[in-house]
Measured scan of single mutants.
Amino acid sequence: MSDQEAKPSTEDLGDKKEGEYIKLKVIGQDSSEIHFKVKMTTHLKKLKESYCQRQGVPMNSLRFLFEGQRIADNHTPKELGMEEEDVIEVYQEQTGGHSTV
């Protein structure tokens, strides 16, 4: 019986991991920090939209990076291997420009 009891508790931990929340720091170019608590399985588009709304800027005017890689709207913290207190960097999107060649 103890084996049966242990097995469901392991499964519960697996389920808990799926719905687990982590805190992420979003740091802007001006070094301002906003902290977000997100589920591991939530699409990061929600975090990006919330950040842009707080900053009063359109979402397409900023780019969000985690460990140097651009974050897509459909990425989740779990897919990117994010952990508690990880940092997302935000930069002004640069458009235009010309070749110097």
Results as ranks from 00 to 15, higher is better:
20 E>I: 12
23 K>W: 15
50 S>F: 15
12 D>M: 00
33 E>S: 07
94 Q>R: 08
59 M>A: 09
78 K>W: 09
49 E>N: 03
19 G>S: 11
18 E>T: 09
95 T>F: 05
84 E>I: 00
24 L>Y: 01
20 E>M: 12
44 L>S: 02
53 Q>G: 06
69 Q>E: 15
57 V>C: 05
65 L>M: 14
12 D>I: 13
93 E>D: 09
57 V>H: 01
90 V>N: 02
50 S>L: 15
10 T>S: 11
37 K>V: 01
43 H>S: 08
83 E>C: 09
76 T>P: 04
83 E>N: 10
12 D>V: 12
70 R>E: 15
73 D>R: 01
12 D>C: 11
44 L>N: 01
13 L>Q: 10
86 D>S: 14
88 I>S: 04
72 A>W: 00
43 H>T: 09
11 E>M: 14
30 D>C: 00
97 G>R: 04
20 E>W: 06
39 K>L: 07
15 D>G: 12
25 K>S: 09
72 A>V: 10
65 L>G: 01
67 E>Q: 07
64 F>V: 02
29 Q>L: 11
39 K>M: 00
88 I>N: 02
86 D>E: 10
10 T>K: 13
22 I>D: 01
57 V>F: 06
12 D>G: 13
96 G>D: 03
8 P>C: 14
96 G>S: 07
26 V>E: 03
17 K>Y: 10
31 S>D: 00
29 Q>I: 15
19 G>L: 12
44 L>Y: 06
43 H>K: 15
26 V>I: 08
6 A>T: 14
57 V>P: 01
55 Q>E: 12
23 K>T: 10
42 T>C: 08
44 L>G: 03
96 G>T: 03
92 Q>A: 10
42 T>R: 05
14 G>T: 07
52 C>W: 04
63 R>P: 00
96 G>H: 08
78 K>E: 13
16 K>Y: 09
8 P>S: 11
26 V>W: 02
24 L>W: 01
13 L>T: 11
35 H>L: 09
26 V>K: 04
55 Q>K: 15
88 I>W: 01
42 T>F: 01
18 E>D: 14
50 S>D: 07
94 Q>W: 10
44 L>K: 04
80 L>A: 00
75 H>V: 07
65 L>N: 06
88 I>F: 04
55 Q>S: 12
47 L>F: 03
30 D>E: 08
38 V>H: 00
39 K>N: 08
18 E>A: 11
2 S>F: 12
5 E>T: 13
48 K>M: 06
21 Y>R: 09
97 G>I: 00
57 V>N: 06
62 L>V: 15
45 K>I: 13
35 H>F: 11
86 D>L: 01
46 K>E: 04
69 Q>F: 08
71 I>N: 02
23 K>A: 09
47 L>Q: 02
97 G>W: 00
39 K>V: 00
56 G>I: 05
89 E>D: 09
64 F>T: 03
36 F>C: 03
52 C>P: 03
77 P>A: 07
60 N>F: 07
51 Y>D: 04
57 V>W: 09
57 V>E: 03
30 D>K: 05
35 H>M: 09
55 Q>W: 08
48 K>Q: 01
87 V>D: 07
53 Q>W: 15
19 G>I: 11
18 E>H: 11
23 K>C: 07
30 D>G: 13
88 I>V: 14
56 G>T: 04
26 V>T: 08
14 G>R: 11
70 R>N: 12
75 H>D: 11
59 M>H: 15
13 L>V: 12
82 M>K: 02
68 G>F: 01
49 E>G: 06
72 A>Q: 07
13 L>M: 08
32 S>L: 05
19 G>N: 12
47 L>E: 03
48 K>L: 03
46 K>S: 06
11 E>G: 15
73 D>W: 02
38 V>Y: 08
54 R>N: 01
38 V>W: 01
71 I>M: 02
51 Y>C: 03
86 D>T: 10
54 R>Y: 02
54 R>K: 06
19 G>W: 08
52 C>D: 02
96 G>E: 02
66 F>R: 02
10 T>W: 13
71 I>K: 07
18 E>N: 11
56 G>R: 07
63 R>C: 07
76 T>E: 00
3 D>Q: 08
7 K>N: 09
90 V>G: 04
21 Y>T: 14
28 G>P: 04
42 T>Y: 00
89 E>V: 09
41 T>N: 04
97 G>H: 00
37 K>N: 05
62 L>D: 03
65 L>Q: 01
27 I>S: 04
71 I>W: 02
61 S>P: 02
77 P>G: 02
26 V>Q: 05
25 K>T: 09
22 I>V: 08
32 S>Y: 05
52 C>G: 03
72 A>M: 15
79 E>P: 00
79 E>R: 05
79 E>W: 07
2 S>P: 12
43 H>I: 10
3 D>V: 08
5 E>D: 13
56 G>D: 08
78 K>P: 05
67 E>D: 08
39 K>T: 07
78 K>S: 15
22 I>N: 02
9 S>N: 15
85 E>R: 14
17 K>N: 12
37 K>H: 03
91 Y>P: 02
81 G>M: 00
56 G>Q: 14
91 Y>E: 07
12 D>P: 15
10 T>Y: 14
17 K>C: 08
61 S>F: 08
31 S>R: 14
59 M>V: 14
41 T>F: 00
68 G>Y: 01
55 Q>P: 07
37 K>F: 03
30 D>S: 02
73 D>A: 00
24 L>H: 02
89 E>I: 13
23 K>N: 09
63 R>I: 09
47 L>Y: 04
17 K>L: 09
83 E>M: 14
54 R>P: 00
16 K>G: 11
52 C>R: 05
49 E>W: 00
34 I>L: 08
49 E>A: 14
15 D>R: 12
23 K>F: 02
